[in-house]
Simulated scan of single mutants.
Amino acid sequence: MEDLGIILKSDSPYASPVVVVKKKDGGYRICIDFQRLNKISVTDPQRVPSPAETLLAMSEDKYFPRLTLTKDYHQICLRPPDVHKAAFVTMGQHYMFQLMPFGIDLGVNFL
């Protein structure tokens, strides 16, 4: 992820823990536990339109682009002032995300 520019080395005062979670198929997934960060997040006052509102707004459009993203949570840039808050520690190394990681609530502004 560092080579892809998703994470950077960090000296942030924030540090969410890395945890191993057992999957339904018996395998394991490495995750970052952002629960404490999410608890101190404030909901963004801008409302996201519902799918029905979005479809209604497009009802008279003639052309629709098609975009398929894999790992879509790594496609959204974090706001520069918030990058240090998405930090984590693993194996003695401290990193922070530049792109939205899985597990951080979307539609929030951090304190």
Rank of each mutant, 00 (worst) to 15 (best):
E2L: 08
D3H: 11
L4F: 09
L4S: 12
I6W: 05
I6G: 04
I7E: 00
L8I: 08
L8Q: 15
K9T: 10
P13C: 13
P13L: 11
P13K: 08
Y14S: 12
Y14H: 10
A15Y: 00
P17H: 05
V18A: 10
V19N: 04
K22P: 11
K24L: 09
K24I: 04
G26V: 02
G26T: 03
G27C: 03
Y28V: 10
R29T: 00
I30S: 06
I30A: 09
I30L: 11
F34R: 00
N38T: 06
I40F: 01
I40A: 04
S41K: 08
V42H: 04
V42L: 08
T43F: 02
P45S: 12
P51F: 11
A52S: 11
A52E: 12
T54G: 07
T54D: 06
L55Y: 01
L56P: 00
A57I: 02
D61C: 11
D61E: 10
K62V: 05
P65Q: 07
P65D: 09
D72G: 15
H74Y: 14
Q75L: 06
Q75M: 08
C77R: 14
C77P: 13
P81D: 15
P81A: 11
V83G: 05
H84D: 14
A86N: 03
F88A: 10
V89T: 15
V89M: 13
V89H: 06
M91D: 14
Q93N: 14
H94P: 09
Q98P: 08
Q98E: 14
L99Y: 10
P101Q: 03
I104G: 03
G107E: 06
G107N: 07
